[in-house]
Design a protein around this nucleic acid. Sequence first.
DNA 1: GGTTTGGTTTCCACTGAGTGGAAACGTCGA
DNA 2: TCGACGTTTCCACTCAGTGGAAACCAAACC
Lengths: 251, 251
Amino acid sequence: MGDSEGAGRSVADKVFSIADAFQSGDELTLTEVAQRARLPISTTHRLLAEWVEWGGLVRGDDGRYRVGIKLWRLGTRQPTARRLRDLARPYLDDLLDATREHVHLAVRDDLGAVYLERLSGRDAVPVISDVGTRLPLHATGVGLVLLAFSPPEVFDAVLAAGPRRYLPNTLTSDAQLRARLAEIRLTGLDTSVEELTSGAFSVAAPVRDATGTVVAAVSIVARVERKAEPQFALGVRMAARGISAALGWRP
Amino acid sequence: MGDSEGAGRSVADKVFSIADAFQSGDELTLTEVAQRARLPISTTHRLLAEWVEWGGLVRGDDGRYRVGIKLWRLGTRQPTARRLRDLARPYLDDLLDATREHVHLAVRDDLGAVYLERLSGRDAVPVISDVGTRLPLHATGVGLVLLAFSPPEVFDAVLAAGPRRYLPNTLTSDAQLRARLAEIRLTGLDTSVEELTSGAFSVAAPVRDATGTVVAAVSIVARVERKAEPQFALGVRMAARGISAALGWRP
DNA sequence: GGTTTGGTTTCCACTGAGTGGAAACGTCGA
DNA sequence: TCGACGTTTCCACTCAGTGGAAACCAAACC
């Protein structure tokens, strides 16, 4: 080989690094991909060509690379996402009808909460989230709910990673978080006020599968002014219960 | 190397073959993957381990491999699918409300039509389609519409591939197809009756982007008995027009 | 026009990463 | 206990992959 230094990364690793580059930016030039993937340009060039030939990535007229439909299709084969989205759809729709705000369905992925689905009312608060993005567990309603029902080592990892304070209300200390999670486990519901997005509050509840394991969380995010309205807590709880039932959960 | 025969496939190729294996089967054992990918077991084993380490595939307690959330997330970064789904959602919802049948949004991927979205009424006809599946261009409403506005070489390729006859009504000959596509181009609408699914008919219309290019198609699939009802053609046409407008199309 | 700048594509000599057959290992069910 | 079937590990061989460097291309600038 020309030389070496790039520390014995396998070819597969390199292929994956390139895929990773697209998690943070949808339309990338060769050089951008190379930078993000920490690979030499020439190597990146060759591997990108293989990706394109396969069809997972496509190259636009502008020379930029994008994720292709083939890769999108592959994603649709993820069993959990497929099943949950399918079953949850009607419940989330009802929730949206009743509130006209943001409705979310999320699962935990490592130390983040990933939105599988997001429905939004026409004039809902602007939020950063989007389907497929990964948000911190400690600063979102769904995240806290998922964390509350995750194995303890996940909690430890979150703490170890140093939970970032997004807003004054964000919980960051061990004690604060523990108290909140205990409350969630007790009541089966979480209410967060301005912990990630200012001007917004969220209500979230756990979704259980047939074995009783918490596999997802449902939430509504709305403007703080509406915090007092009772239908949020009720709606989220009922939706979560409905989806759980659809998954085969019997209390 | 131990030997060779597997004809100079590059590592990347092999990695991709493994991904392909999951397009046809969601939960696969090592041996199944090896068979589908046409790779030696030991090679498959090693590469699967790398996939799992990366997180794109996950291995369940049952030893089977599945597509992981990471790969699903990567799919959500596909710009076309994301944009179209987002914009189309409200129009498709309206269409569903008005008809209570199957509502589809599809794009062309090579020689197939891929459903980006499918909403279904509670008691709609059972159909084989699902989000992410690829259906033949010549035998579906959306497919014919997409074909009508694709470059001529796509049509040639479809003919060359030998269009399969699914039901007596399926169009298969050059002449039949040409006539139908001409009609679609003229009227901006397609009506198919029992061409893929018996007992079902579909109405489909093209979606255009800001440049006037047809980028997707909308359709309704319903039971033949309702064929005479006028709201289908109207609804599909209006939905397609609405989505086009949202994409920036000005007639 | 010439020159710089920023990205892309091609080339090629070198070598260790990748290979896959085979054997060992588990785990069923009879 | 034994066979059948799937999984995991091993290892000697070698060619696929490597990446620096140079050529290339297209704007933008002087």
